[in-house]
Amino acid sequence: MTQAEILTLIDDELFFDNIKTELSDQKIIWKDHSGTENSVLPHQTAFNNEGVFAWWQCNEAGKEHVHIRLKERNVITWKPPVDTLIQPIFQEGLLYFHENYLIIKYKDRHYQRLFIFNIKTSKDEEIILNALTIQVKIINNELFLAGLYSDEDFIKITMHPDHIERETIDENYLRERNIIFD
């Protein structure tokens, strides 16, 4: 499925909620009940092979949300936690599905945050790195994380159907497996 097709699905979902939007190949824009502009860009979307899709909803007043549309036409709304009074932003963000996990990376003022959200249980877990910027590499059910400009923080997350396992790794482990962060 292309990102333009996902935008169309999101637009349809908003239509079912009686929201009038402007849709193009690059963006969906609409105003909410308070007159605040909301938008979704193609790179702020994700989908899995089971027909589940998600999108990061930008809001000019800072009320950002992630919406996850399940197969049953149910929509889960997840509000990105912030540690500051500044709004979360999707700058250099990531939305990515692996089976029933949605990986969410976003920026909270000075540093990036990464959450793994289980769409079956509606539970999230934050993966904390001692770094301002998080590099991500996904290989099958393994999520590799590194702090940019940090030689100490490397984490491997293995995503199993019912749980995730976290393991601290080092540069030698990455070299042995030929894992390079793009």
Rank of each mutant, 00 (worst) to 15 (best):
I139F: 01
H98K: 15
F154E: 05
I134S: 06
D83R: 11
V75N: 08
I104V: 14
N141K: 15
L95R: 04
K105N: 02
F90G: 00
L114H: 05
E126N: 03
L143H: 06
R113E: 13
K137F: 04
L114Q: 00
P88M: 09
V82I: 15
N130I: 06
K79T: 14
V82N: 12
K107C: 06
Y96C: 02
E92Q: 13
I155Y: 03
K105H: 04
N140M: 03
E125N: 12
E126R: 10
G147C: 06
P88E: 11
D153M: 04
Q135A: 07
I86R: 07
G93D: 08
T121Y: 13
K107F: 06
L132T: 14
F115T: 04
Y106E: 03
L143Q: 02
V136D: 03
N100A: 08
E142F: 00
Y101Q: 06
I139D: 02
T84C: 04
P80E: 09
L148P: 00
H110Y: 09
P88S: 13
D151V: 04
T84W: 12
T121D: 14
K79G: 06
L94F: 10
N100H: 12
G93I: 12
P80Q: 01
F117H: 15
I155F: 10
K123A: 07
T133H: 10
K105P: 01
A131W: 11
D83F: 14
I104G: 05
V75T: 15
F144W: 00
L148N: 04
F97V: 07
I138H: 03
I138A: 02
N118L: 05
H98V: 13
E92N: 15
V75Y: 03
V82Y: 09
D151H: 10
T121P: 13
E152I: 04
K120E: 13
K137C: 12
P81H: 11
F90K: 06
I155G: 02
L95A: 00
V136W: 03
E99Y: 07
I116H: 05
Q91F: 11
F144M: 01
S150I: 04
W78G: 02
E99N: 11
Y149D: 14
L129R: 07
L148A: 06
K107N: 00
Y106M: 00
E142C: 08
I155P: 05
F117A: 09
D108Q: 02
N141G: 06
L132H: 14
G147I: 03
T84N: 15
Q91A: 12
K137W: 00
W78K: 05
F97M: 09
I128C: 05
Q87T: 09
I119N: 11
I134A: 01
L148E: 11
F90P: 03
Q112I: 00
T121G: 14
I104T: 09
F154A: 02
E126Y: 09
T77G: 04
V82W: 11
L114T: 07
S150G: 08
T133A: 04
S122T: 12
F97Q: 11
F144L: 01
N140V: 08
N141H: 15
I134K: 05
G93T: 08
Q112P: 08
L132K: 15
Y101F: 14
